[in-house]
Design a protein around this nucleic acid. Sequence first.
DNA 1: CGATTAATTGAACCTGGTCAATCGGAGTGG
DNA 2: CCACTCCGATTGACCAGGTTCAATTAATCG
Lengths: 242, 242
Amino acid sequence: MGIDCRYCPLHKKDAFVTMTREELEFMQKFKVGELSVDPGTTILMQGSNSPQLYTVLSGMGIRHKSLDNGERQVINFVFPGDFMGLQAGMLGEMGHSVEARTHMRMCVFNRSDFWTFFRSNPSRAFDITWLAAIEEHFLGETLATVGQRTALQAVSWAMLKFFERGMGLGLVTNNTMTLPFTQRDLADALGLSLVHTNKTLAKLRDQQLASWSDQVLQVNDLDKLADVAETERSKPAKRPLM
Amino acid sequence: MGIDCRYCPLHKKDAFVTMTREELEFMQKFKVGELSVDPGTTILMQGSNSPQLYTVLSGMGIRHKSLDNGERQVINFVFPGDFMGLQAGMLGEMGHSVEARTHMRMCVFNRSDFWTFFRSNPSRAFDITWLAAIEEHFLGETLATVGQRTALQAVSWAMLKFFERGMGLGLVTNNTMTLPFTQRDLADALGLSLVHTNKTLAKLRDQQLASWSDQVLQVNDLDKLADVAETERSKPAKRPLM
DNA sequence: CGATTAATTGAACCTGGTCAATCGGAGTGG
DNA sequence: CCACTCCGATTGACCAGGTTCAATTAATCG
């Protein structure tokens, strides 16, 4: 069944803070099951009050927010290890939706246990807040990208983030990783039009900085890409896993 | 001295969740002082690891992030009741700076007490996470604005948010509130140029939707403004106060 | 009174958006 | 197996929302 946290495929990856046996057992008590969904499935719905919280075990997805005028903003991209549903858990309402882009498998927790969880293990509660702070940090950087960078810089930045994230998760082989998103997803994430995103990707490909086609992203020189994006490469950091 | 939490000017305002006497006494134990700064002062510095955390008692400021290319993104605007320094507290490094725009007074907590604080009162720890979730929620909306809305919609949205925030804090009198920010601050918050921001504000003024000049914002019809911004007016919500 | 900062306005220009057409691959029904 | 459709990627032509440059005004300050 793959329900036992000790065999969780994630907690030994070096992208995550090492968990003690006690922590694993503690999490086990709150895990109520696993959820598998197909690509395209909406896992959490904007405005809804999900009774469940999830940690992504495998697969990828997007968080996005729909505006009243029909436009869509992709808030960020979901990777294994990401925790989803905090807004519903705390505020009682999701500010965005989460949609699967590949087949996804998730670890499921009950929202009704959340308070008990939070109270009975301050250290794990602390980790939840840690994750929230990471999220806030990253959203700030995204906002700076969308607000201040040119299309070329923004797309480079996004490719860099994808790649760095992929490396931490061991998804990169031969300077290559699988990215199941569409160009429309990226365009909506960066506040660019689809057409211009496409042309900008083509330019990055021409300049041998990053090539993304057929769901495969290849980057040979991360430093050069970071230069174009006018960013620093971020040092690999461990984050807690729920 | 104004050090006693029982006389805190904020906790009875209806923008905040009511605090019990026990909670006030608990916070009192961790409060190590107050900080007063003049306009223009940098309170927290991007990249630094502040030894202190703050709750704003009075005054306003901005959070902003500087990019490598010299551009600046204003992440959001700081109002009374806002909690600052969580990123330093959790991640050991601020992702943005905080700069005062008026004279500001803050309640000061020591970062070194943070873990003790978190562990000894789960309910207050929960509230910290709540605040982080609110922040994430709001950043998502900001991102959607910068990424998807036109200049006119974005500026309208910002004026609406200012006003809604001001109403909750009792800063609005006669459809009017004081806003100590510059047009450059707003431009950098919305990813617009200063010139275009100025012209857009003029348009809002001409159309009698919102008038902001000489530090005073006046809005007579919030619904009309929300229409132009293509947003819903948000219902007044209480948030926890640290 | 010169210096600095914020707001304002006009004009030229350009990055990125919109429109539209094409192409290839995957799925579907006959 | 073919015709048809749908979706994502791609490309060219045209256009506009917003940027940049530049100059002016007004207020504040030492």
